[in-house]
Amino acid sequence: METEELLGIIANGEDSRHQFKAIINNVNSLASEMAAFSNSKGGHILIGVNDDGTITGLSDDQLRRINQDIANAATNNVKPSINPMTQNFSLPAGKVLVLTVEAGLVKPYMDSSGYIWVKSGSDKRRVTAREELQRMFQEAGLVHADESSVQNSFTAEIDEESFDAFFEREYGESIEQQHVPRSQLLENMNLAKDGLLNIAGTLLFSSRPQIRLPVFIVKAVAFPGLYIEDDQYIDSQDVKGKLTDVFQQSLGFVLSNLKHIQKEQGFNSTGEPEIPRIVLEELIANALIHRDYFISAPVKLLVFADRIEIISPGHLPNNLTVDNIKMGNSNVRNPILASFAPKLLPYRGLGSGIKRAIKAYPHIDFIDDRDSNTFKVIILRKEK
C-alpha cells in the first residue's frame, strides 16, 4: 500500500474491508478482529486513526509493541493461526500502522475463546446460525452436505428394484450373492450410517426422496416473454423423484419448450433442439450434483423467449471463480454424489462438463452471485 492509497482509505471512512483503531491494548480483541477479516473477504485495520478518520498517530514505542502484539495474536490467539502483514507509515499528522489480513483459505477461524466472527459492515458479528456454520465448515472441507444423515430416513425406504439393478450392473454380482443385508451394503457404499440414509443415499435410491427432503426439487417454468410473470407462463412443473428421474424430467422439460430444427432429417423427424442436447445434459447435471445441499431451496430452471436460466443454491465453493471453471478447474462440494453421478447420469466429472458445454455452444454466461449465495447459468437462445 502506498501513502496516497492510505490517505484515500482514511478519507472514505470505515467499511467492511477497512477498520480504524486509535490504539490496540487488548490482544484477545485484536484476535477476534483478525478472525473476522479472515472469515470474510480480508481487509485492513488502520491503527492510529479514530473512527471519524482523524489521525491520532502512534509513538515509536507503540508501533513496536503493537507489531509484537499482532504477531502474538496471529500465532496464539487465532485458530488456525494466520500470517498478517504490517506496514508503518509516517504521515504529517502522525505515524499509522496498517495491518493487512487476507481472506483465509481454511475457514472457519476462531478467537482464543473458540468464537467464530465475520465482518458485518464496518463492524463484526459472531456466527451462531447452524446453516452459516455448516457452510463455513463445508468451505474448509471439514464436512459435506451429501454425507449428512437425513432424520427418520430409514434404509428400508430405498427403491429395492432400482438399488439392486444398480448394484448388479456396477459390481457384477446380485444382492443375494452378498449374504449381507442391504442396510449394510448402503453403509459400505457411504450412502447410510447407523441405519439412516444420508442426503446422497436418499436422493439416489429412496423410493420417494421428497418425503424427507421436500425442498430438494427442481422448479421449472417456461415463460412466453423475457421476464418472470406470475400469471403468464407456458409450462410449469415441480420436478421430483430420485436424482436420475429429476435429471431426465428436467431435461425433458427444457427440450419440450425449445424450438427443434429439421436440418437434413426427414420430414417426420422431431429435428434437433436449437441448443445442443449435450449442453443441457452437462449443465443440468452440474446443477444437481454441485448445488449446496446445506441450503433449503430448490434448483430453478427457467425458460424465456431469449434464454434459459439454471439457478443453483450456493455460490462457487472456496476460491473458485467463473474463469476457473471455464478452464476446467473444479472443487467437489458433494463428493458422494459426484462419485455416483458418472454411473447414473451423463456426467464425467473432473471439471470437464463446463468446458464441454462451452465448446458445443459458446453462448453461455455464468454468474457467481455471492451476495445472494446462488450460481446462475444463462444459455442464450439464438435465432437459427
Rank of each mutant, 00 (worst) to 15 (best):
E2H: 13
L6Y: 04
L7N: 06
L7R: 14
I10G: 00
N12L: 14
E14Y: 10
H18A: 12
A22Q: 11
I23W: 07
I24N: 01
N25A: 09
A35I: 10
A36Y: 03
H44L: 15
N50H: 14
D51Q: 05
T54D: 07
T56Y: 01
G57M: 13
D60F: 02
R65I: 02
N67Q: 13
N72D: 14
A74V: 01
T75P: 02
N76T: 11
P80F: 04
I82W: 00
N83G: 10
P84T: 06
Q87T: 12
Q87A: 11
V96Q: 05
T100M: 08
A103T: 05
K107Y: 02
S113L: 11
G114H: 02
Y115V: 14
V118F: 00
S122C: 14
R126P: 00
A129W: 00
S148V: 13
S149W: 02
V150D: 01
Q151V: 12
F154S: 09
G172N: 07
E176K: 13
Q178M: 13
L186A: 07
N190H: 12
F205T: 09
F205D: 08
S207E: 09
P209K: 05
Q210F: 02
Q210V: 05
R212E: 04
R212V: 01
I217L: 07
K219Y: 02
P224F: 08
I228V: 15
S236T: 10
Q237W: 03
K240D: 04
G241T: 06
G266V: 13
F267E: 10
S269H: 13
R277L: 15
R277C: 05
E282A: 14
I289D: 00
D292K: 01
Y293D: 00
I295S: 09
V299T: 12
L302N: 03
L302T: 00
D306Q: 15
D306F: 09
E309W: 02
I310T: 10
I311P: 00
I311F: 04
I311D: 01
G314A: 14
H315V: 03
N318D: 09
D323S: 14
N324E: 06
N324F: 10
N329I: 02
N331S: 09
V332M: 05
L337M: 04
A338W: 03
G349T: 05
L350Y: 06
S352A: 15
G353I: 06
G353H: 13
K355A: 05
A360M: 04
A360I: 03
I367C: 08
D369Q: 11
D371W: 10
L380P: 00
E383H: 06
